[in-house]
Structures are given as structure tokens and as C-alpha cells.
Amino acid sequence: MPVTVISPIALITGGNRGLGRNAALALARQGTDVILTYRSHADEARAVVSAIEALGRRAVALPLDLTDIGCFAAFADTVRQALASHWQRDDFDFLLNNAGSGAHASFADTTPAQFDLMSAVHLKGPFFLTQALLPLIADGGRILNVSSGLARFTLPGYAAYAMMKGGIEVLTRYQAKELGARGIRVNTLAPGAIETDFGGGAVRDNHALNALVAGTTALGRAGLPDDIGGAVAALLAPGSGWINAQRVEASGGMFL
């Protein structure tokens, strides 16, 4: 009798654009089905779903606002329903905490509102969303938290953002320790400067900034979305299961 192969399922926050979109497509090419979330731009989310389906994989897009912790229990129920209706499963395999936004302001000028937004999106949101989704993550699954090269090197204007990313890196180690009994591996991926629309597309569109990044990177250029999508796929590939509680920087060797 033919053997039925069950494809892994990844849930990617902020999968409608930028690095999340690229990660979703890279995972789909690797044979993974995708549940992606979006806060706005539902049309972009539908386009990603279509692109994943064109690759022969299944995908669903669900709305989610990471700043609204009160909605996480209902969101988990929606994920449970999507798993049952689209995959006839009650769990998924990979969680990629990717969704984010930037705030550029000096330490002296950072406002409480900016600080609170960075905390909600990059630290508090992923903390409690992962908590809400834990019953749906398969034993032996994986969590990949997205940090930033800015948690290692320092550029003026990113204190609040980088502080939250540093917190995510600490959280990763605690999650790996506490979820190890279920065989769940947890790692951090820290992208460097990437040519996307993040931060208004500064790295992509500002030629002076792009040249600065290239000049401080061992490989001599700024990063591209495919560089990060490929790194995500590699860290969630079957052969990387012994990598756990690690911070992996994908920056091309920036500020060595």
C-alpha cells in the first residue's frame, strides 16, 4: 500500500510581506504547508496564499494584531479550526515569530508610546502568543523567534527596538529549556540589514545607507530577502533538529 506522507505545517506571523513572505515561500518550496497571519493588507496575504498554492502546498491566511493580547485565545481557536478543516489535524509543527515593526529614535527622544509599541510587537506579543499556541504545537516541533543583528551590534536610533530583540533572545533560551521535555526545539534567527520595505525601505532605497551596510559586511553587500527565507528553511529543515537554544545571525558577517 502507498505510504501517506504528512507535510509539516508552519505558522508564520506577519507572513504577508517582507521577510515573512519570503520565509513562507522558502518553506513551501521545501514541502511545508503554511498558516500565515497579517494585521492589514489582506490582499497581500491572499497573494502569498496563491503563490504557495502554485508551489503545490496548502496555505491559509488569518488576521492577527500582535498588540491585542486579549484576542490570542480566540486566535488559537481559529487556528484550531483551520487545522481541522484544511488539514484534518489538531496541531502544527513550526511557529515562526516574525511579525514586527520599527521605530527609529534616539534614546533621548524615544517616547513611552514608541517604547510600548516595540514591547507589544516584539516582546510581549510573541511571549503570550506562543503561550496561547503551545497546546497546538506538535511534540517534536520547533519555534523560531526572529531577532536582529542590532541586538549584537549598536547603531544609534534603535535602542528600544534592539532592547526588545535582546529580550527575545533570552526568552528563546528559556523556552528551549522549559519545552525540551516535549521535544520542541527553540532558536533565534537574527537578520542583519536586509533590502525590504522595513523601516520605510531605508536599506533598499537609500543608496548611502546601502553602501554603508555593504562596506561593513564581510560579503560586501546588504542582505536580500532570499538570504533570510533560505536561513529560515535551513533552520526548520529535518536535518537541523539538534540545533537548539541558539542564536543564528544571518547578516553576511556584518560589523565583525
Rank of each mutant, 00 (worst) to 15 (best):
131 Q>R: 15
96 L>T: 10
203 V>W: 06
194 I>Y: 07
26 A>W: 01
13 T>Y: 11
47 A>M: 06
207 H>Y: 08
97 N>G: 00
224 L>H: 14
180 G>P: 11
152 R>A: 13
6 I>K: 00
17 R>K: 06
26 A>F: 06
42 A>H: 08
199 G>C: 07
229 G>N: 08
117 L>F: 12
102 G>V: 11
10 A>V: 06
235 L>W: 04
105 A>K: 00
9 I>D: 01
143 I>M: 10
113 A>L: 09
47 A>D: 15
74 A>L: 06
148 S>Q: 02
202 A>D: 10
119 S>V: 07
45 A>N: 13
177 K>D: 15
123 L>E: 00
76 A>K: 08
41 H>S: 14
98 N>C: 06
223 G>M: 04
95 L>K: 04
98 N>P: 03
121 V>Q: 11
191 P>Q: 09
243 I>V: 15
215 G>Q: 13
193 A>D: 11
254 M>H: 15
191 P>A: 12
226 D>C: 10
184 I>Q: 14
102 G>Y: 09
244 N>K: 08
210 N>T: 12
28 A>P: 11
181 A>W: 05
255 F>N: 15
94 F>A: 09
167 G>E: 10
254 M>V: 03
64 L>S: 05
133 L>I: 09
169 E>L: 04
138 A>Y: 05
129 L>D: 01
193 A>M: 09
159 A>D: 14
237 A>W: 12
245 A>S: 10
57 R>C: 10
14 G>M: 07
30 Q>E: 09
182 R>G: 07
146 V>N: 08
90 D>T: 02
190 A>N: 12
173 R>N: 02
147 S>T: 05
92 F>P: 00
48 V>D: 01
17 R>H: 03
19 L>F: 07
58 R>M: 09
253 G>V: 08
153 F>L: 12
22 N>P: 00
66 L>G: 03
206 N>K: 07
117 L>S: 09
152 R>W: 03
60 V>F: 00
152 R>Q: 13
74 A>T: 13
254 M>C: 04
11 L>P: 01
152 R>I: 13
206 N>W: 02
15 G>E: 11
55 L>G: 00
205 D>V: 02
50 S>N: 13
93 D>T: 14
7 S>F: 06
189 L>K: 04
99 A>N: 02
105 A>R: 03
176 A>C: 13
167 G>I: 15
141 G>F: 02
99 A>L: 02
36 L>K: 00
34 V>F: 00
40 S>K: 06
35 I>F: 12
251 S>H: 08
129 L>C: 02
95 L>W: 10
104 H>G: 03
113 A>Y: 01
59 A>R: 03
83 L>Y: 08
132 A>T: 01
205 D>W: 00
148 S>F: 06
72 F>S: 05
65 D>G: 08
175 Q>V: 00
239 G>V: 05
111 T>W: 13
11 L>T: 08
225 P>F: 07
198 F>Q: 12
96 L>C: 07
54 A>P: 10
24 A>P: 03
39 R>G: 07
127 F>P: 02
189 L>Q: 11
94 F>S: 09
150 L>A: 04
222 A>L: 06
176 A>I: 12
93 D>L: 07
13 T>M: 12
11 L>C: 06
144 L>Y: 01
